[in-house]
Simulated scan of single mutants.
Amino acid sequence: MAESRHLALPSFARWTSVREEVANVLRGAIIAGEMRPGELYSASGLAERFGISATPVREAMLDLVKQGLVEVIRNRGYKVTVISEADLDQITQIRHLLEPTAAAEAVPHITADELVALRELASAIVDAAAEGNLVSYINADREFHIRLLSAAGNHRLVRIVEDLRAQTRLYGLSALVASGRLVDSAQEHVEMCDLIASGDAKKLKKLMSTHLGHTRREWAGRSPE
């Protein structure tokens, strides 16, 4: 992610502060691999690219420090935390244990209004994939999955999944955009909505498991060892 590149701040209705908006955009950039370990990032440099003051950027970076996504380099700035391949494999394994079952349990609790919101997010995911906007893709994807899992009512599980998703790295997304295959993966969210509408929790669980498998295969740019 070049220093001169402008960073846009999308305005999702539930976001309540510039600090939170900045944190979400940076988190998405880290997960998508647009901000990589080894590069030094300054609050002032990032603020210039956002077109805002440095204060909310510093606050957002401190939030990401607490999540373990970045580390402070004294008197210099911030670096993205290194996550090993073994860590990523373990994160994916835990997500496989939690998310498919939680998604299936959420099906009977999802209201018509909530399904409409999920369909809108699924469309946003597909649009972002088609445009090659990885940060928007990651943020819409996160919103979709958290909304879906939240319907089951287990808020502790949702917080755990949020932390695990934040630690995931998807360095293969750029290659998928170039090949046009990211749109195919994005369409799985539309399929999930259709399964929710039909009340088919069993098929949703299977699709969610398949969907998560992408995180350590093509989305990560490698195959599991």
Rank of each mutant, 00 (worst) to 15 (best):
G33R: 00
I110D: 04
H6D: 15
V82A: 06
R27V: 00
R142G: 01
D194V: 11
R95D: 11
I30Y: 00
A43C: 08
E131P: 06
G213F: 01
E85C: 06
A175P: 01
S53Q: 15
P10L: 08
S198N: 13
S174V: 05
N24I: 04
E143Y: 09
E114I: 08
E218T: 12
L7H: 07
A32G: 01
T215K: 06
K66A: 15
T111C: 12
L148N: 02
R76S: 09
K203R: 14
S42K: 06
M35A: 08
A102P: 02
A152Q: 12
G38F: 08
T101A: 15
Y78P: 00
L62M: 15
A124F: 01
L7M: 14
Y171P: 03
R142S: 09
N139S: 13
E39D: 12
V72W: 10
A151W: 10
R74M: 12
A124G: 13
L148A: 06
V25C: 07
V57M: 00
D141H: 08
M192I: 03
I31A: 03
H189L: 04
E99H: 00
D184C: 14
R147S: 10
R58I: 10
H155A: 13
A32F: 02
E34H: 08
L149P: 01
A8C: 08
D194P: 03
L9C: 06
T215H: 10
